[in-house]
Design a protein around this nucleic acid. Structure first.
Lengths: 369, 369
DNA sequence: TAGAAAACTGGGAGCGCTCCCAGATATATA
DNA sequence: TATATATCTGGGAGCGCTCCCAGTTTTCTA
């Protein structure tokens, strides 16, 4: 009863620096130095202070810290309104994972800003770019985000772009080598002997969509093959988009497809199945991403792997660097991709025919990328 | 040049309440009252102050506000380590969307705490539950999270659970009626004339897994059918898990399956296709979730729809209520589910046979739930 | 051993708000 | 018109830190 009474009527006062200092027999300043790992405190005092900190379970108050130091230790992840695939494409959860991990690693907290409606955007954006909410922002690149980037630059909020922005700006970004990845994928199809290779591209008003298209185009050309405009259909990176685009593509009778995302490949497989064609015998496929769906599809997808998690980690690290040292010179990081060969391109079959290697079954949830 | 010079050497001082007050010819307090919509300011003064605020683009400094008011206006979403499906199941992005929208709506900012490794958890958790980082937490229910809930209660951090915790605690939660949803789904299969109905359940050490199993069990029993233990295989909500579980289940020759998630249903379809059986003719299927994959599968999935986005919104609203009024009495919200009939259960076929309704094709990305 | 230099420690000011209370002004009542 | 009352406004204190500077102690040098 007494305990209960005291709990209610004399709540434990908030543990402050001052209180820790008192218990350790030193001053506020000294405890602050210890907490922040600053030099200039004798070793034994430092230890004594740490002891009290651990005993009491003291954690500094973030708001007070922020107010005094002008650093929030918060990073914002901004998904602009135009990225509607956030809720269907496994790409984003994976990217978020990498970002979240890197934040933990660096004692930063991650805030999520999803602009779902135009209203969200109008209301939220001014608040976000006002100094004092976050130390910096990671912004997903989109066709429509370029205006955001200008505003961000003007507001002098440190930020970095996930993916390459459409118009060359002074902004920093981290991206994968979409061009080389696509080129490599198409070269692989050509080596498999496919002759009439179509492309189910991403939106051509995004750099990811465009770069992958150009990689396809160059690989076709360098092999003296003809570019047939009927063999290009533009998708939107989604499964549904892949399905409808593939239905149109099939009319032009390709014998192979380069598909700009795994999700679209899933849709394409559905369309191909409905057309009673078989992969890879009637149509070879190479896609892009290497996300879990690639191993879930039947046949399993040969696909260009992006190191998505590492991309997330690097985004955070580079952003912290920008926060520390300013936005100039712009940082630009491009990750290499890797072609992962599975069943949909026919290479696996060819190898097995020659050497009798057993087919690899779909693995469980590997923790790669 | 002059402009540039002044930009660099006399940076605009941070816009503060005091400065706005000066420009409006009133005091700090009055501006504060206006900003916070408090009574006791004459209408014309109020307007004058708003004008200055808009002209200057003033936004109050969040840290100062937090320090003075002891409110951070931050909500944390915690995904415990054991939820490894976060990165593959579209459930979580959708939930996150609902939560993010509700946060925007209520002028809260959403922070994401993903515990990926045990290390993350040990390091992050004490920081999170210390008062002052967030005003409240939304925690995803898992088999292993019960200990977290106890610690959260002790730390007196307002929190709410997404899903029902395993052990009854005093905690508040928001969940869907998994039991009734599953029961309804199985009843539907029975009505379709299926006789040997198996279940591919979720993990039986989670309430979602268990409740759905019990709904299945009761529906079987109430129809005088026998429970066959060979017709139960436990999965993990993932595609891969569904695939392997279905392979085992098929040995027992069910003529229908109730599958506890859409992702597992996708895996099951893969296994069924490999076994050269057809859905719904050889095997009828009803699953759970109604996420985009349900319309992407072939055949499209009859499935129990959960109102995931509404669930996210309600989580936030209830949490804010707890922050405002305290944790007692515990709030408990249960959402109803809805059976969405598509192709995989055979009902569509039966109806068409009778009435000649054209089959509905897979819709695009509807913005439902 | 004195004096200079280096290493350490403590207190004050201030970050930009909110909240409380006292004082000023407008309005109602006798 | 004088007084009581309701309404409005301003300033002080304080939230819990960081950062700077001045003062104190220790160590080094001649």
């Amino acid at each position: 009863m007494v305990a209960l009474f005291s709990e209610i009527f004399s709540p434990m006062p908030n543990l402050t620096l001052e209180e820790v200092a008192r218990q350790a027999g030193v001053s506020r300043s000294t405890v602050s130095r210890v907490i922040n790992n600053q030099a200039g405190v004798k070793a034994d005092i430092r230890r004594r202070v740490w002891d009290v900190i651990h005993e009491t379970g003291y954690h500094p108050n973030p708001a007070a810290r922020t107010l005094a130091s002008q650093r929030t230790h918060l990073i914002g992840l901004v998904i602009p309104r135009s990225v509607h695939t956030f809720f269907t494409d496994p790409y984003f959860p994976r990217l978020t994972l990498g970002i979240a991990q890197a934040c933990n690693q660096n004692d930063y907290t991650l805030s999520l800003f999803l602009f779902h409606t135009e209203d969200d955007e109008r209301k939220l954006f001014p608040r976000i770019i006002r100094k004092g909410l976050v130390d910096g922002l990671i912004v997903q690149a989109t066709n429509a985000a370029d205006e955001l980037f200008v505003q961000l630059s003007q507001a002098e909020v440190p930020f970095i772009i996930a993916g390459r922005p459409m118009n060359l700006t002074d902004a920093s970004y981290v991206d994968v080598d979409n061009f080389a990845g696509a080129q490599n994928a198409v070269r692989h199809l050509i080596r498999q002997g496919y002759k009439r290779i179509g492309i189910l591209s991403g939106p051509l008003n995004t750099t990811a969509g465009l770069d992958r298209y150009q990689g396809y185009r160059d690989a076709i050309r360098e092999n003296g093959m003809a570019l047939d405009e009927h063999l290009l259909v533009e998708g939107d990176f989604s499964e549904a988009g892949g399905y409808f685009a593939a239905r149109r593509l099939l009319d032009s009778r390709p014998d192979a497809l380069f598909i700009a995302s795994d999700m679209m490949a899933l849709g394409a497989l559905r369309a191909i199945r409905e057309a009673r064609l078989s992969v890879p015998d009637d149509i070879g496929i190479v896609s892009f991403d290497d996300l879990p769906p690639a191993t879930m599809a039947s046949p399993t997808l040969t696909t260009v792997r992006q190191p998505i998690r590492r991309l997330g980690i690097r985004l955070v690290e580079t952003l912290l660097d920008i926060i520390e040292l300013g936005p100039y010179p712009p940082r630009r990081v491009i990750f290499d991709t890797e072609l992962v060969i599975r069943e949909s391109c026919g290479a696996d079959r060819n190898i097995r025919e020659q050497t009798n290697i057993p087919r690899q079954s779909a693995p469980g949830l590997a923790d790669a990328n």
